[in-house]
Design a protein around this nucleic acid. Structure first.
Length: 253
DNA sequence: ATGGTGGGGGACCCA
């Protein structure tokens, strides 16, 4: 059963859902988001603001963790068939949740940061991509959004020369993203905005947002059986008081 | 110049 409705699906690394619940509710309403994919909720399921979201018209599926990580999916539609990373791997970090809602399969992912090449965390990041690729291969009617912590090319980096070889900009990480694209997932933001500089994350430090010193780390990837009419970065949300360091990416399906 | 900010939780870890 394929959806023929027009829907807005968006991803946002919120950097603590409890610190930004008011911003979340305003964004959902102001942007008319139908399905929201959240990362870095930084709380356990029991203290996620499920009731406030329900009062605003959203069901929640949560894969939480104390203090760090944590992902969730909010939907105006009924949520079925919830799968978390812990259901499909022996990894205890809360970085992936997948559901069926609004007639499509949707996943929210928070790829490890990786810290720097030649670290254990970097190897964990590369391995995470391999496990993710294996899990999502051959899916259809599928949208996966989230913080992939990788730039695909120089148009995703404000200062490519300075960032070359640094974390989020290494060849090995970019190869993992290409593997996802080769498996049938479309980088819909880039497809609809070729050759543009696009960023979704700006460091809190040194006024990076005001200088537009950013990276594109957040993506909405869609299988080719889905038609997407727009994909934008909502920079207004990054300009809020006490913002997340990431801006949402919003697509219309 | 190796700084700067921010969230979690209550000293440092993570980004």
């Amino acid at each position: 059963m394929y959806s023929i409705a027009i829907m807005k699906i968006a991803t946002w690394n919120i950097n603590s859902v409890r610190a930004r619940i008011d911003q979340l509710l305003h964004w959902l309403v102001d942007s008319s988001v139908d399905i929201a994919l959240l990362q870095e909720i930084k709380c356990i399921n029991e203290v996620f603001p499920t009731e406030m979201l329900n009062d605003t018209g959203y069901n929640s599926a949560i894969c939480g963790q104390k203090s760090y990580n944590g992902v969730a999916i909010l939907s105006k539609y009924i949520i079925d068939d919830i799968i978390t990373w812990q259901d499909i791997t022996d990894d205890s970090q809360a970085r992936y949740i997948e559901v069926f809602t609004g007639g499509i399969n949707v996943a929210s992912v928070y790829v490890p940061n990786g810290v720097a090449p030649d670290t254990q965390q970097y190897e964990y990041k590369l391995h995470f991509f391999d496990v993710l690729l294996k899990h999502i291969s051959n899916k259809s009617n599928f949208v996966i959004g989230g913080d992939f912590n990788v730039t695909v090319d120089d148009n995703d980096v404000y200062n490519p020369a300075a960032w070359r070889g640094k974390i989020c900009c290494t060849d090995k990480e970019r190869e993992k993203m290409k593997n996802l694209f080769d498996s049938g997932l479309s980088d819909i933001t880039r497809i609809l905005h070729k050759e543009e500089k696009i960023y979704t994350w700006w460091n809190y430090m040194a006024g990076c947002f005001n200088k537009d010193y950013g990276l594109r780390l957040d993506y909405m990837l869609t299988t080719k059986d889905l038609a997407v009419s727009s994909a934008i970065v909502n920079k207004q949300v990054r300009g809020n008081q006490r913002p997340s360091d990431h801006a949402p990416v919003e697509i219309i399906l």
